[in-house]
């Protein structure tokens, strides 16, 4: 292939896509078997995940090699930008499904179960003792069985102005540090670039650490689990998927950090950095949504 940057770079046939496909296939087969209670499934799942990691490292090293060889023209760069932006948009829509579920549950289904509006008959005949409150700790079936959640001071379940606030500050600062890293990169100042990146990774890790602590607290002391009704469901699914994204983002920033140390980026040409930075900001914004709607209001 030509390495001039006038023509659009079309890669040679590559084995990574099919390796990736097989890896995902294996992962899902393993996952399915595991969920169906087969121990062997866990093994296959592990192999699948390993294969996914292998694929990513292989694919991305090809990309890095091509990028370093100067194969990517301005136009290719723009393709990547479109690609990354719309990928992030698809992630936004994925979270939108869960936020939508949260709103539906809080605004419609829980009040209905509690007898508001269209839920009058539902409440009267099916869940007479249920009270619609949020966060929901005494679920309709508990109310029906006459069981109360032991935690009555509901607003204090996961207080917004405690660890979550710290986490908000952590993530917001990590948005700042990555921007500072970007500024350093644009001026070709490699040392500050690396330091700011390292700071970002660190903030991400501390965030996840606190999050895990919060989960442990919820499970062990608050009796708030995935199984404890919709409050637990929405809480853990939203924060859980977010935490997973933070972990992925931090990993990516870590890779960018290593590449920065190797001097892969120039002040002009560093899309990989920017793509990851966009992703990090997206994770940040999702957190703000979470903070407001899951913890605060």
């Amino acid at each position: 292939m030509s390495d001039s940057s006038d023509t659009y770079f079309i890669p040679e046939p590559s084995r990574w896509p099919i390796v990736g496909t097989l890896a995902l296939f294996l992962t899902f087969i393993g996952g399915g078997m595991m969920l169906n209670g087969s121990g062997f499934g866990t093994f296959i799942l592990g192999m699948g995940i390993a294969a996914v990691i292998y694929m990513f490292s292989g694919w991305f090293s090809d990309v890095i090699r091509e990028s370093m060889a100067g194969n990517y023209s301005k136009q290719v760069d723009i393709s990547f930008r479109w690609g990354m932006s719309w990928f992030i948009f698809s992630e936004v829509m994925f979270f939108a499904a869960f936020f939508g579920a949260l709103f539906y549950i809080r605004v419609l289904s829980v009040p209905w179960l509690g007898g508001e509006g269209a839920g009058f008959a539902t409440h009267m005949f099916l869940w007479p003792d249920f009270k619609a409150v949020w966060p929901l700790l005494t679920t309709p079936d508990m109310a029906l069985a006459g069981v109360e959640s032991q935690y009555t001071a509901i607003k204090d379940v996961i207080p917004a102005f405690d660890v979550p606030l710290v986490n908000t500050i952590l993530l917001l600062s990590s948005g700042v540090t990555i921007t500072l890293a970007h500024h350093a990169l644009r001026k070709d100042h490699r040392a500050p670039l690396c330091w700011w990146l390292a700071a970002t990774v660190l903030l991400g890790i501390v965030f996840v650490y606190f999050q895990i602590g919060e989960y442990a607290h919820a499970y062990h002391e608050l009796d708030l689990t995935m199984k404890s009704g919709v409050y637990g469901s929405t809480f853990f699914m939203l924060t859980g998927f977010h935490g997973f994204h933070v972990t992925m983002g931090a990993t990516m920033i870590f890779i960018i950090l290593i590449r920065s140390m190797k001097g892969h980026f120039s002040s002009k040409d560093h899309f990989a950095f920017e793509g990851v930075a966009w992703y990090w900001h997206f994770v940040d914004v999702v957190w703000l949504g979470l903070y407001i709607f899951v913890y605060w209001i």
Partner: peptide, 16 residues
Amino acid sequence: FGTAFFDAAGGGDPLL
């Protein structure tokens, strides 16, 4: 995993 998005007994709704 025992979530209750679609189960009224846990405060969810099949219609969701």
